[in-house]
């Protein structure tokens, strides 16, 4: 995330909501607060239809994160 931001390109990370505390630690360590959209946990055991649902859940937030000034 930091690498892409340094190139001047806005970026958003998709992260399992179980990992919110990990993002906080990462931000603290790197001195950088990335744009993050949280995806409802779990992901790995889901079937195709459930995964599509996850994508539909987040698409507006993703666009929002990339267009926020």
């Amino acid at each position: 995330m930091l690498d892409i931001d340094r190139m001047g390109t806005p970026a958003v990370a998709l992260v399992s909501d179980e990992f919110a505390s990990g993002v906080a630690s990462w931000s603290d360590l790197h001195g950088f607060d990335p744009a993050v959209v949280y995806v409802r946990h779990p992901i790995q055991p889901l079937n195709e239809a459930e995964l599509r649902g996850r994508a539909e859940d987040i698409v507006d937030s993703v666009i929002g994160a990339l267009t926020r000034s």
């Binding site: 995330m1 892409i4 390109t9 970026a11 990370a13 998709l14 990339l66």
Partner: peptide, 24 residues
């Protein structure tokens, strides 16, 4: 492992915005 520099360079030259994921 972190993304190689070449991948980052290509993304930065070809894209206006980036979605990275999915970390779980």
């Amino acid at each position: 492992k972190p993304a190689p520099g070449a991948v980052i360079d290509r993304i930065a030259s070809e894209c206006d915005a980036v979605i990275e994921g999915l970390a779980d």
